[in-house]
């Protein structure tokens, strides 16, 4: 029983970690890689400053 709970908890943790990493990737792609003109203009100096390929 305890083992089963521990196992469930461990896999929930893996989902939580995966979700955290996915949020991170989403934020980086939105700020750094979106080709939308509005995103590009606001993010222009940031992209240059952190050396993302910009234009």
């Amino acid at each position: 029983m305890i083992k089963a709970i521990a196992k469930t908890r461990a896999s929930t943790d893996v989902y939580a970690i995966a979700l955290t990493a996915m949020i991170g990737l989403g934020l980086i792609f939105a700020a750094g890689f979106s080709h939308a003109a509005g995103a590009h203009d606001v993010a222009h100096d940031t992209r240059h400053a952190i050396a993302f390929p910009c234009h």
């Binding site: 949020i23 991170g24 990737l25 980086i28 939105a30 222009h44 940031t46 992209r47 400053a49």
Partner: peptide, 16 residues
């Protein structure tokens, strides 16, 4: 804009 985008970008790095 740069400040806002830095918050988004560095939060992205932080999540990873």
């Amino acid at each position: 804009g740069t400040f806002a985008m830095n918050l988004v970008t560095w939060s992205g790095f932080a999540f990873i």
